[in-house]
Structure formats: structure tokens, C-alpha cells
């Protein structure tokens, strides 16, 4: 009975989501089904909006069901608990689809439990703390590459929300449509739009309880109870692209290099050879360049693939510096042509 209920709910959500996105195929101007009568009360700048969206979860406790669906029809959902206490934020994400897993986050510390494999991964996601500094430092380039338009209001998960569209100013990035709860600013729905304005992916709360009684100490206890789990910690070494012998011939407009890591080699790969991950961001979208030594056995196929808003591109890079060939994998929430520009611009400098 319980299952049947969930099944119908999920199906309704999925079909609803698909329909909505099918509707969104029509030109951009008509896409959001927003009542024209509801005029936005306050005009906010892009920076104001981003700060508001970012600050919202820092002041609230909530729980809800979060659904992510892609243009290809894939759907994933999770149960979310969120609580904050001064400068501490905690979150619990219990996946309802795919392999069972629970993810806990305390600020930038993340632990992912995989109960079937009895593995707990711990990692520090540096990027989670970076953003506010980006905006407050005043040197954010985001408004240079995105415009903002408030397009009215709509109800999501039972809450009135402002609908805001972030419009890219060139073809190198995707657009976003954001539903922000009116009182708190919390993002209750987010769509990623391709360069033609079609929805590639959407993420939304299907059900949300604001100011829910979520207990931080309980989440903390759950996050710490790794007994019986094999602890895994990704072995990451900070480096720079220059130190690894890589450079971009021409910078891609708006994308700044953020950080560079060496990741452990893939299984069966010669020891000592690591994958270099070079990360770029324009403030909203992120691109990762992975470079590894070319291996004829494993690296069979160049190609491009999309999963929701995430695009990938793989390329065989012929080395001209006498240190062999390279295999390049690009991953990012950006149009395919942006990944191509990165691939073409990458240069061996050693």
C-alpha cells in the first residue's frame, strides 16, 4: 500500500515534470506559466538575488522531498533535512531512488553512507564555502555574463515563490529559472535552460515543511555513527596547472581557474600516474578538465554525452612534447561548444 502510494506520487511528479518541460519547448518569452497579475514587489539586482538565495538556508530549518528530473526523462528524488545553528549548517539527504545512500553535510564536511557496500566516504568540499566571498569582494564577474529578470510569482510545494530568470549574455553558458520562496528566499525549484531556452534539467521540492523541528544533535549523531562502515577518503593533492605543465591558449570568456587537484590513478593504471583535475567557474557554472596519460587499452572512444544539465566531452590529445599522448575528459554544466572551446584551448607547456 505504502509503495503503491509512492509509486503514484512519483509517477505523477515525473509526468508532471515532463509535461512542464515539454511546454517549456515553446519560445522563452511564453515559457513560464506565471500569472501576469502578480507583479514583483521589489526589483533586486543580480547580486542581491544571489546573496538572498545563498543566505536563505543559513537561517532556516526545513525538511522536504527534493526531485531532480532531466530532459531525457531520468528522475531522482531524495528526502531532505536541513538545520542551522549560528554559523553551523547541517543537512541530511536520504536518496529515494537508485542505490540506497545517505549524505550528511556539516558546513563543508560531507559524509556519504552506502549501506549496501558498507562504505562511508568522507570528504571536504572546499567549494561550498567559497561563494559569499566571491560576491562580497565586489569583483564578481557574474553580472558581466548573466542578466536577471523577475518574471512574476508561482506556487511551488505549497509556497508562494518569486520566479527569477538568469539569462546568459552569450552562448557559452546555460540559463537558469529560479523559484525563490517569497518570505525566506529559499530556492524551492531550479531549472537549467539550454541556449535555446529549453529545460535541460529541473530540481524542485515536491513537498516542503519550513521551520520544521529538525534536531542538529540528532543529525550530528547520525553523521558520526560510522561503526561497521569502511571509511574512504579520496586522496586528493592540491597542485597548479602550471606545475603539471598545462595552460589554456585562450581564456574562455568569464571562466576563471578555481583550483587544480591530482586525483588517484584509475585502477589498473601505472602507479604514479595521476589524473589532473583543473576546475573553472564563471560564478554559476563549473567546468572540470581531467587530463590523464593516454592508454590505448582503455581510451577507446572520443565522444560527447549529456546527463541532465551536465555535459561531457572526451578527446585524444596528441602530444608534441615527446612525453606521450593524453586523454582529456571535460565535464561541466555548460553547452557542448564551451567544452569544445576548452578542449581546443588546452596546451602542453613542458
Amino acid at each position: 500500500m505504502k509503495f503503491a502510494k509512492f509509486f503514484h506520487l512519483a509517477l505523477t511528479l515525473w509526468v508532471g515534470g515532463s509535461l512542464q518541460t515539454v511546454i517549456a519547448q515553446t519560445p522563452l518569452s511564453t515559457a513560464p506559466s506565471v500569472s501576469p497579475a502578480a507583479q514583483p514587489a521589489i526589483e533586486r539586482s543580480l547580486a542581491d538575488w544571489l546573496t538572498r538565495l545563498h543566505e536563505a538556508p543559513r537561517k532556516r530549518a526545513y525538511m522536504g522531498t527534493f526531485v531532480v528530473s532531466s530532459a531525457a526523462g531520468a528522475m531522482a528524488s531524495a528526502r531532505i533535512w536541513h538545520v542551522c545553528d549560528g554559523d553551523q549548517q547541517m543537512e541530511r539527504v536520504e536518496a529515494l531512488t537508485g542505490a540506497p545512500r545517505s549524505t550528511f553535510r556539516r558546513n563543508d564536511q560531507v559524509v556519504t553512507f552506502q549501506p549496501e557496500a558498507k562504505v562511508a566516504r568522507t570528504e571536504k568540499r572546499e567549494s561550498l564555502g567559497q561563494f559569499p566571498n566571491l560576491l562580497t569582494a565586489g569583483d564578481s564577474a557574474i553580472p558581466e555574463f548573466y542578466g536577471v529578470r523577475q518574471i512574476g510569482s508561482e506556487r511551488v510545494a505549497g509556497f508562494d515563490a518569486d520566479v527569477v530568470q538568469l539569462i546568459p549574455k552569450d552562448k557559452l553558458r546555460f540559463g537558469y529559472r529560479i523559484w525563490s520562496e517569497k518570505k525566506t528566499g529559499l530556492v524551492v525549484k531550479l531549472q537549467t535552460l539550454d541556449t535555446a531556452g529549453r529545460v535541460l534539467e529541473q530540481a524542485a521540492f515536491s513537498e516542503l515543511q519550513l521551520d520544521a523541528p529538525v534536531k542538529m544533535d540528532k543529525l550530528a549523531r547520525m553523521m558520526a555513527s560510522t561503526e561497521g562502515y569502511k571509511l574512504e577518503k579520496p586522496e586528493m593533492v592540491k597542485t597548479t596547472a602550471a606545475a603539471e605543465g598545462w595552460a589554456l591558449r585562450n581564456p574562455i570568456p568569464g571562466f576563471q581557474p578555481m583550483s587544480c587537484f591530482k586525483r588517484p590513478a584509475a585502477e589498473g593504471h601505472p602507479a604514479g600516474e595521476r589524473t589532473v583535475q583543473w576546475i573553472f567557474s564563471d560564478g554559476l557554472a563549473t567546468v572540470s578538465l581531467f587530463v590523464e596519460v593516454f592508454d590505448r587499452q582503455r581510451h577507446l572512444q572520443e565522444g560527447a554525452m549529456a546527463m541532465g544539465a551536465t555535459q561531457t566531452l572526451t578527446r585524444h590529445l596528441v602530444g608534441d612534447k615527446g612525453d606521450g599522448d593524453w586523454w582529456l575528459t571535460l565535464v561541466g554544466e555548460v553547452p557542448a561548444q564551451t567544452l569544445q572551446a576548452f578542449a581546443q584551448g588546452l596546451e602542453r607547456r613542458r
Binding site: V68, V93, G98, T103, Y176
Partner: peptide
């Protein structure tokens, strides 16, 4: 994991990634 240098990463990007992660 390491590429979430986005203004949308927190709040919704993290949820999106944690929800999507491994689902496929």
C-alpha cells in the same frame, strides 16, 4: 564533488548533486 564552484551550489546545487549522485 570538487567542481561545485557555483553561486547556486549552496543551497540547491548540493542537494541536486547529492540527489543525482549515484542515481545513474
Amino acid at each position: 564533488q570538487f567542481g561545485g564552484n557555483s553561486a547556486l551550489q549552496n543551497p540547491s546545487g548540493f542537494l541536486r548533486n547529492a540527489t543525482f549522485e549515484g542515481a545513474a
